[in-house]
């Protein structure tokens, strides 16, 4: 009974909100360019489905590529840094500076570097920059989180640095790396959207551009439809990664 209530409650709240929204639009005669009714957004979403799907795929694929790029670079850097204390002290401030710099601020520069002909490169780079930190931080924390007594045993057994890295540090870091990826995936999506707004200038097909373009034409319902897709996509990515994290962790822990 409790479970059913738990599952029904969010759906009920959503239905109430949408119902209230629809009623308000109809009863208060709100102008569609100010706030379109949910039914109008739905109609627009159905009508524009092929274009929206194409745009969603554009944004999603760039976010995914950015995640892969960030994962590779931050993983390798975390590995290198974990081997040398000096390197870590040297790299940390740079990484933190990069982390706290808003990507909106560096977007124009990255746009210039990527070149006018390749706006997608600018978008992927910016999204990768945003996704970089959680993975790097997770991997580094994880590699240092190995059980100190296990580390002592490895020393006692005369394990080489390479053995300690591959057979202790890297396996120990897996839960932290997974958590880092979960956070980074959401950030990559957000980063890809922001970068489309800030650096692509309409040069790539994506949901952010769809929103901007619709608003230019005062097709507010269309913008909301794109926003709806973006929200669903974000939730789906988060749920999917959460599931993957649980599965992999269960395998890692053996239950």
């Amino acid at each position: 009974m409790r479970r059913i209530v738990d599952q029904v409650a969010p759906i009920l709240l959503l239905a109430l909100l949408i119902g209230g929204w629809e009623a308000a639009c109809r009863l208060m005669d709100i102008k569609p360019y100010f706030l379109p009714a949910p039914s109008a957004i739905w109609t627009e979403a159905i009508k524009d489905a092929p274009l929206l799907a194409l745009s969603a795929w554009g944004t999603l694929s760039r976010a995914f590529i950015a995640l892969v790029v960030a994962s590779l670079i931050s993983g390798l850097l975390a590995l290198a840094v974990s081997l040398s204390g000096i390197l870590e002290r040297a790299v940390r401030p740079l990484v933190v500076t990069l982390q706290v710099t808003p990507i909106i601020a560096i977007a124009p520069i990255v746009q210039i570097w990527a070149g006018v002909a390749h706006p997608e490169r600018a978008v992927i780079s910016l999204a990768a920059i945003v996704a970089f930190f959680p993975i790097f931080s997770g991997a580094l924390t994880g590699m240092k989180a190995a059980d100190p007594d296990l580390e002592r045993l490895f020393r006692l057994y005369g394990a080489s640095r390479w053995q300690t890295l591959t057979r202790l540090r890297i396996p120990s870091s897996i839960p932290f790396v997974l958590e880092g990826h979960k956070v980074a995936a959401g950030l990559a999506l957000v980063g890809a959207v922001i970068a489309e707004f800030a650096a692509a200038g309409g040069g790539v097909i994506g949901l952010a551009w769809r929103i901007q373009e619709s608003l230019f034409r005062l097709q507010v319902a269309k913008a909301f439809a794109a926003l709806l897709i973006l929200g669903i996509m974000g939730a789906a990515v988060y749920a999917l990664l959460g599931l993957a994290e649980r599965r992999i962790l269960a395998w890692w822990r053996g239950r």
């Binding site: 007594d149 005369g158 202790l168 897996i174 890692w252 822990r253 053996g254």
Partner: peptide, 16 residues
Amino acid sequence: RGETSLVFQAPTLAPW
């Protein structure tokens, strides 16, 4: 080194 073994208070096993 190879002739010395150690057991801790916790089992200290690799969970993976």
